[in-house]
Amino acid sequence: MRDARSFDDFYRSTSARTLRYGHAVVGDPGEAQDLVQEAYARAWRQWGRTPPAPGPRSTRTAAAVEAIRRWWN
């Protein structure tokens, strides 16, 4: 079962760093926001499943994967 409160805490504690990472990857603040939004949407879809919920590293990885996917398309 997904726990919105724990996800909110996770988002608040990791989103600024993930956004900085996304900006470093793509070099554009608007594009970085889009990447990070998609990364957290993916994290939410996985939230509460076993194994444990995604961590900060997984959201940064998801942002990088999304950047690569967009670059290739």
Rank of each mutant, 00 (worst) to 15 (best):
R5V: 10
R5H: 10
S6R: 14
S6K: 15
S6A: 15
F7L: 07
F7W: 04
D8K: 13
D8L: 14
D8M: 10
D8A: 15
D9E: 12
D9A: 10
F10E: 03
Y11Q: 10
Y11E: 11
R12V: 03
R12P: 03
R12I: 01
S13K: 15
S13A: 15
T14C: 15
T14H: 13
A16V: 12
A16L: 13
A16E: 15
A16M: 11
A16T: 08
R17I: 01
T18Y: 04
T18V: 14
T18M: 11
T18I: 06
L19A: 09
L19P: 00
R20I: 00
Y21M: 09
G22E: 04
G22V: 00
G22W: 02
G22P: 00
H23D: 10
H23M: 09
H23F: 14
H23C: 07
H23G: 02
A24Q: 12
V25T: 07
V26R: 15
G27M: 09
G27H: 14
G27L: 09
D28C: 08
P29F: 06
P29L: 03
E31G: 01
E31S: 07
E31I: 03
A32L: 06
A32F: 08
A32E: 08
Q33D: 11
Q33A: 14
Q33Y: 05
Q33K: 12
Q33S: 13
D34W: 05
D34A: 08
E38T: 02
A39P: 02
A39N: 05
Y40A: 02
R42I: 02
A43R: 07
A43Y: 09
W44H: 09
W44F: 15
W44P: 04
R45V: 02
R45M: 08
R45I: 03
R45P: 00
R45G: 11
Q46Y: 13
W47F: 08
W47A: 07
W47S: 09
G48I: 05
G48E: 07
G48T: 05
T50Y: 08
T50H: 11
P51D: 05
P51K: 05
P52Q: 12
P52L: 03
P52S: 12
A53Y: 04
P54R: 11
P56Q: 05
R57I: 02
S58R: 13
T59Y: 06
T59F: 13
R60C: 15
T61E: 12
T61G: 07
A62W: 13
A62G: 04
A62L: 12
A63S: 08
A63K: 00
A63V: 00
A64E: 14
A64I: 01
A64F: 13
V65K: 04
A67F: 07
I68W: 15
I68S: 11
R69E: 08
R70K: 13
R70L: 11
W72R: 14
W72Y: 06
